[in-house]
């Protein structure tokens, strides 16, 4: 092999390798094959969320009266005897005419009854993060009950209401329909 031929041959090899290498790396694979399948038990252990249409609500039920007892034992020390707020935020109260002028009137009370648009959110949040010092320790019946109690205290359900998988998603909150999607898009407009 002459010197020139050898160089040409080497170049050809290098080019081939380069092309092959480029091809191998230009397209990422559809999958890398990492991770392992999650089992149903593993998903159920973490999947605690509840959606506005009721998806995710566990079996169980609770009444206003039962909820009053749960509230007194587990919630009142931070949120006040009647949900009026103490070291933790106020939960109970409506504004005159269910005013939603929160941007302009600092005197309006912001509570479950005046500002929360979905009753299911109250269940979801109470179940995952309350009571503050022992989060996630209420069983579903206790959570349904305390949600029923707070909805009653806010004048949203009647005293004989029972909350469960069927009834809770049907509760229409006073603040429902007050929320709008974000219309900011950048550009010159100040919104």
């Amino acid at each position: 092999m002459t010197c020139a031929t050898r160089i040409a041959f080497t170049l050809a090899l290098a080019t081939t390798a380069l092309v092959a290498g480029t091809l191998a790396q230009s397209q990422p694979p559809a999958r890398y094959g990492l991770g392992r399948p999650a089992t149903g038990d593993e998903i159920r252990a973490r999947d605690i969320d509840v959606m506005p249409d009721g998806r995710g609500l566990p079996p169980g039920r609770g009444t206003v009266a039962e909820g009053a007892a749960v509230y007194a034992a587990r919630c009142a020390s931070c949120h006040g005897k009647d949900g009026e707020g103490a070291s933790a935020e106020r939960l109970v109260g409506r504004n005159e005419g269910d005013s939603f002028a929160f941007a302009t009137n600092p005197k309006l009370v912001r509570t479950v009854g005046s500002y929360w648009p979905y009753a299911t959110t109250l269940f979801d949040y109470t179940q995952r993060a309350m009571p503050f010092q022992r989060p996630g320790t209420l069983v579903p019946n206790e959570t349904y009950a305390v949600v029923a109690y707070l909805l009653f205290q806010n004048g949203i359900v009647k005293e004989d209401a029972v909350m469960d998988q069927a009834t809770l998603p049907k509760v229409v909150m006073p603040a429902h329909g007050r929320f709008v999607v974000d219309d900011r898009k950048g550009g010159r407009a100040i919104k």
Binding site: A101, Y115, R178, F179, V180, D182, G186
Partner: peptide, 13 residues
């Protein structure tokens, strides 16, 4: 909350 009596949701950016 906005002055028109609504509140903006998912105002993420």
């Amino acid at each position: 909350p906005l002055p028109d009596g609504t509140a903006r949701m998912f105002s993420l950016v």
